[in-house]
Design a binder for these strands. Structure first.
Length: 209
DNA sequence: AAGACGGGGAG
DNA sequence: CTCCCAGTCTT
């Protein structure tokens, strides 16, 4: 069951995203599953601009899992050094490439890989293939907990169910817009005056009381 | 469900 | 230096 407000938010967000989506290398059309995975794997706990500085060069040096198998952990760590967490990430990439010829396309199988949780798995499959999966990080949680303050659940499992229900068929556009909206408008200090949802956002309504 | 982890960044 | 943070891992 989808409420009128949920439907409205979904449409407003998609429209906002068409005009305000941010451009990043990994969002270019025809990126492979591997290329998108690399980006999402690097983007956790790392600012996007930071990832941009190493992304293209990394893909040039390691265009597929095959090249990662051949590389040493030190070589990998050196290539991603500016990102931080380089040893942890190099080790995980090495383990992934050593055990897989290709990345799986089921979220549960992706999540079996080291350092790949629900966020990276769903984001990778949604952004690379358009799979209709919920993408839920702290930014998204902040957005939903404000706009739908009265119905947004406490538990993680219920939050995923809530989010899954809202994701439309245009999952890629929707989830990208959701992340950008959380980063640009619904920030920790939100810019409610310029927010499209300020007519029905519960957080904003309570602010005004 | 709660805390640990590893390490970056702000103050 | 201390505190906070975000996603994953561990219990």
């Amino acid at each position: 069951m989808t409420s009128e407000t949920e439907r409205r938010f979904r449409n407003d967000l998609l429209e906002w995203g068409r005009k305000n989506r941010r451009e990043y290398s990994w969002r270019e059309p025809d990126r492979t599953l591997y290329e998108v995975f690399v980006a999402e794997f690097f983007l956790t706990q790392t600012p996007a601009d930071n990832v941009e500085t190493v992304y293209s060069e990394f893909l040039g040096q390691f265009p597929s899992l095959d090249e990662i198998v051949e590389a040493s952990e030190d070589e990998l760590a050196e290539a991603i050094e500016p990102l931080g967490f380089q040893n942890m990430r190099a080790s995980a990439l090495k383990q992934i490439a050593s055990s897989h010829d290709h990345l799986p396309t089921e979220p549960e199988l992706l999540m079996e890989l080291p350092r790949v949780g629900r966020y990276v798995a769903n984001a990778t499959l949604c952004f690379a293939r358009g799979d209709r999966l919920p993408v839920l990080d702290r930014n998204v949680e902040r957005v939903y907990s404000r706009v739908f303050r009265d119905t947004w659940p406490e538990s993680e499992a219920e939050q995923f169910a809530f989010t899954e229900r809202l994701v439309p068929d245009e999952a890629r556009a929707y989830n990208l817009a959701l992340l950008d909206f959380g980063a640009l408008i619904c920030q920790t200090e939100p810019l409610c005056e310029q927010c499209f949802a300020n007519e029905y956002c519960i957080y904003f309504r309570e602010l005004e009381e």
